[in-house]
């Protein structure tokens, strides 16, 4: 998990990928603003920087890095959830296109990029495989005058990374049960929410972000 991330150099990647990918019309309009990702102790924060660059500068190198990591995982997730190869490919392209278009809606004080991509993929799965609508709670978005605090973002991202580590160290049976639930292999009445994972700090961090957001929206 989180492989290859710490070695990802945005400057280098943008040269390498940007030079060999043709620039399509709609992606050309804005001049990419190259902001070097700050070195951080938590590698998953690099994904946050990538989404930020997709959002601010339609940065294709950053998008490519996100694509190379997440697209194969989204595809595997959809196949495990019952999609055939062709549908999974189609659906994954759709999920990644949504990531591009909705980058401005990503809130790093409430979700890691993996979590955000998961929710997009899950909603697509319900739509395509279960042929149902997915009711989502009311949108809450930070206005231009209020943005999440940097330390809230770092904290949430680090907690999410720790959750990934905790999951990797769960007994195999327990981990498989959680995976089954998320691949839709368990019915809702079979799902046991006691995961054995340390969710308390994440819950309270998200709650704090929501409180600040509600306050900012007043």
């Amino acid at each position: 998990m989180l492989r290859n991330v710490s070695t990802y150099d945005p400057e280098e990647a943008s040269l390498a990928i940007g030079s060999r990918t043709p620039v399509t019309k709609s992606l050309k309009g804005t001049s990419p603003r190259m902001t070097k990702a700050k070195p951080v102790s938590d590698p998953s924060a690099d994904w946050v920087a990538c989404v930020e660059r997709v959002k601010r500068a339609q940065d294709r190198a950053a998008f490519r890095a996100l694509f190379d990591h997440f697209a194969p995982r989204v595809k595997a997730y959809l196949i495990k959830s019952g999609a055939d190869m062709a549908l999974a490919e189609e659906c994954t392209q759709d999920v990644m296109a949504t990531l591009w278009h909705k980058a401005h809606l990503f809130d790093p004080s409430r979700a890691s990029v993996a979590t955000w991509v998961y929710t997009i993929a899950r909603n697509r799965r319900i739509d395509i495989l279960r042929k149902q609508r997915r009711p989502e709670p009311e949108d809450l978005a930070w206005g231009p005058e209020a943005e999440p605090e940097p330390d809230e973002i770092v904290g949430l991202q680090q907690d999410s990374a720790r959750l990934g580590e905790a999951m990797a160290s769960l007994p195999r049976k327990q981990r498989e049960l959680i995976e089954k639930a998320y691949f839709g292999e368990l019915s809702h009445s079979e799902i046991a929410a006691e995961t054995g994972l340390p969710l308390g700090t994440i819950k309270s961090r998200i709650r704090l972000a929501l409180d600040r957001l509600r306050h900012a929206m007043k």
Binding site: Y77, Y118, S160, L163, G164, K203
Partner: peptide, 16 residues
């Protein structure tokens, strides 16, 4: 949202 984080961790750990 914290259960979504578990989903994110599952997604991230899938062998691609």
């Amino acid at each position: 949202a914290s259960y979504d984080t578990v989903g994110g961790a599952v997604l991230d750990s899938i062998s691609p």
